[in-house]
Design a protein around this nucleic acid. Sequence first.
RNA 1: GGGGGGUUAGCUCAGUGGUUAGAGCACCUGCCUUACACGCAGGGGGCCGCGGGUUCAAAUCCCUCACCCCCCACCA
Length: 823
Amino acid sequence: MALEQYFEPRRYEPEIYRTWEESGAFRADAGSAKPAFTISMPPPNATGTLHLGHAVMLAIEDLMARWRRMAGDEVLWLPGTDHAAIATESVVIRRLQEEGMADPRGELGREELVRRIAEFVASSRDRIRQQIRAMGSSCDWSRERYTMDPQLHRAVDAVFGRMFRDGLIYRGPRIVNWDPYLQTTVSDDEIDTQERPARFYTLRYGPFLVGTSRPETKLGDTAVAVHPGDERWREQVGKTYEVAWPKGPTITVKVVADEQVDPETGTGALGVTPAHSQVDFEIARRHNLPLVQVIGEDGRMTAAAGPHYAGMTVEECRAAFARELDAAGLLAKVEDYVQPTPICYRSKQPIEPLPKEQWFVNVNEPAVPWKGRKQSLRHVLHDVVASGEIVILPQHEEKKYFHWIDNLRDWCISRQIWWGHRVPVWYRGREDLYVGHHPPEGEGWTQDPDTLDTWFSSALWTWSTLLDPELAADGPLGGDRGGKYRHRELDEILAGSRDFQRFHPTSVMETGYDILFFWVARMILATTYATGQVPFRTVYLHGMILDRDGDKMSKTKPETSIDPLDTIEENGADTMRLALVIGNGPGKDLKLTPERVVGCKRLINKIWNAAKLVDRTVGGRARAALTMSAFTVAHPVNRWMLHKQRELVERVDARLAEYHFGDAAEIVRGSFWGDFCDFYLEAIKIPELAESDETAAVVFAVFTTYLKLFHPFLPFVTEKLWQELVGEGMLIRAAWPVAEPAHDYATDAEGVDAVVRLIAAVRGVRVEQGLEPGAKVDVEVHAKAHPEILEASQAIVARQVQADTLTVIRGGEAARQGAAVAV
RNA sequence: GGGGGGUUAGCUCAGUGGUUAGAGCACCUGCCUUACACGCAGGGGGCCGCGGGUUCAAAUCCCUCACCCCCCACCA
């Protein structure tokens, strides 16, 4: 066998991946007796393209999967894709519009549009699957899931139904975050705040002055609120005023006293706009105030704003109304200020708070059976992390998590889009409401038109993917059809699902810290509720991949942007993976640069070249002759190498166990390059060692152990070399190295460390004295300890430092003159 | 406004009480030494953000300040 000059990723990687996959190495065996190690892959958008966020996620998860698999666990890494409701629907609608269809929803209707979206997903889903493979991901494709799979749909409806019955899901009018552009509500977590230059207006408002940045909403005011203890307005509370807006309606406002008003803020009087402000809505509810909606779902003023303003956009009305107020002398003051404006994270368009009937998850209702008591979802969310049942890494993310819970409000889960899990509720007339997976029997039922927040179904991901598809199908257990919902149905499915029993809770949830709230928290919420289990034991949050300036990679900055697919194509998946992992740690952002990528590529080349030398050293010896147990390793240099590697294995294991994967890779790299390549492989070039069977066995054992240690980080090149050098079995299935107690050669290690120092010292002296590279020297060394090892290493030293003679002076003091060195 | 993180070699970062503070990349010098120039050898380079405190001992613990980054937010 002769290895090629270079490792050529493009040539080898796809073939190696195919071999792994076809061999069944990725497939988890639910029937094995090994301990389970489970990772649910965060499902990428089914219609998406691999980006660096996916790449770092896959690199880290795959290294965990490979490490634990080699270490003897039954590994299930379950892959899948997400239907990404809003994102996918808007992509398809935009494509249809580009093809000339003005109003796809109107023209196609619900059924046909959903069919087209499903078709689009089906046709594009294979791309992301292949890209996940290109990263070398050792996930179990036989268990691939999709968030719209039938059994996942069943789980969604089951959880919705159970929550509804437990009073945790309710429908009600609330101020919701309405995106007039996407024509749907979004949850609080789907909003970004953008600071925009704006004006702050102070209006005369009967006897009050009130401030607002949105005067147009004042057309719909129904009250003025003051603090109950505010002496200034004591007389006014309870009175009613009429305010005649110029060119607008005359509104009736009641003066109410409410604790929520801060007398120190602004004028201390708050104009209450119940329909267009969260705070005002709550105040209005407490005081039974009417609600007047002056802004519609189209983002334009309604008839309630009066004929002059109706039909104007919000911005037009703001300008027009401010002009009229000014003309009428009602505008006391206008100031410039910076307004935090809510923006939909998806459409990047302003959010309009509007009153709507929506479905919500109640996070405060104590209805969750938890540790023997009824608790609120919010309580359980807090408890599982505070108690350590779930550990979040890096640890400071736990503080953010608690802070989020402290500010958590009810979760709006209904969306006015068509692509997604439809709300499993049917109505008949005004009174009848039915919740279930199937429509109820009888005539006249219509299903709720809304779909569920995509995160509602993702929240079930760790376990809905493990349900037995047969059990969860609409077959033998379809008991809710037309009648009573069987409340234990979900429990029965869970109990009967072998994978769920075997692989849940999952071991590690690995994802970006940017979706801690969106997804991780929701999984904890829904999974503790639905299954009584935590979804995962450890949350590993990786950081963001940034460009050299610390900005997010963006197509608008192509000069600093790095594309994972291009990088894989050019340098191979091993390089891409290592560049994302080495030296990186939980929660740490990583600046990815071409230099970093090149540096990683060099390690792969180094490993490849070392393999060539190892192969030559091992020569034609039969593998049986390379079995370590056949030798009592005698030479100090061989012992040194075994000792160093034993220490390395211990340190790597410790780093991996602490989730310091980047450190682990760094340590293996340093040991391999420094100890193995720079010293050991050079040292054994002396004939005495090069020709010995002992050396052949040691170098073979040590190198193959390095292949194992590198394998989780660099699966392709290590597997290729395993095939070439070992030729038996596959590295992916090999056993993880253990620190061999018999390889504790502390004395030899100390002695050879002195040899290493001696070589460096003599080289230093050579340079100091300006010797020609080829010039021979005579070396005299004073050995403080282990002179016999120095003597045994004479040939090695001589070769490394171009020495003619090496004289070891026993017990010498630290004398140093000429080429004499003390070690 | 609330919360979190950071400030160590030119760059990216390790290092969390104890000998002359480390790595990779970059840089300088010399080498194509038959595994590797995607390499080898040698080397330069750091008041460890500022100030104070605790300690026999601090990059490392505590406090003040400065600057940078991120997240959350219903000051009307």
